[in-house]
């Protein structure tokens, strides 16, 4: 069984938002909304500063509160790769999932259902990377199977210092950031 995830090299990311734009065109995300976003994490005082730049999105958690709290069975774990998805026509737009998500990864689509990153499962099923990964001019994002010990992801995770976001929430996020 595959377990899809991402590894993102923050050393390379410049925060250009190409991932955000590509997601919007690939998935027809409506104006004013976006499924991925950039965070610039600044620490220190001028001129002794550190800044980590991250591209963030739904973490496709292994222990996803958005799925457990969904009263309609719309939020669910997809059989392929453990990707967290939403059945649009089952979703009532109640926003319970949005309140449950520690990453603020979801929003309500103007058509009335909860919406978020799908890891571009429609592309992945056809052997392609998610749109954000495939456009990134800095090649800072890696998508693949975390269960495969030989995957590029595991090679990176085994050789570089990394962390996931808000792990204290216990949701077991599947996106990892290399320092």
């Amino acid at each position: 069984m595959a377990r899809f995830g991402m590894v993102i090299d923050t050393k390379k990311c410049v925060g250009c938002m190409d991932c955000v734009v590509a997601c919007k065109t690939e998935n027809n995300v409506p104006e004013g909304l976006n499924r991925d976003w950039i965070v610039q994490d600044v620490k220190g005082t001028y001129p002794t500063l550190n800044m980590q730049i991250r591209t963030e999105r739904c973490n496709h958690c292994d222990n996803p509160p958005c799925v457990y709290c969904c009263p309609c069975g719309a939020s669910h774990i997809h059989e392929l790769g453990g990707v967290v998805l939403v059945y649009h026509d089952k979703c009532s737009g109640c926003k319970a999932c949005m309140a449950a998500c520690p990453y603020d990864a979801r929003f309500i689509h103007p058509d009335g259902y909860a919406n978020k990153c799908t890891f571009c499962i429609h592309r992945v099923e056809n052997g392609m990377d998610p749109a954000c990964v495939s456009v990134c001019p800095t090649h800072c994002m890696y998508f693949g199977d975390l269960d495969d010990p030989n995957s590029e992801l595991n090679k990176l995770l085994n050789s570089r210092k990394h962390r996931a976001l808000i792990t204290e929430a216990g949701t077991k996020p599947q996106i990892f950031y290399l320092d």
Binding site: P71, H88, D89, K90, S92
Partner: peptide, 16 residues
């Protein structure tokens, strides 16, 4: 919140 709860499983997330 139960509106839509009985709708058959679909592939509506395949937007493209």
């Amino acid at each position: 919140s139960t509106i839509g709860g009985f709708v058959k499983k679909s592939n509506a997330f395949f937007e493209n």
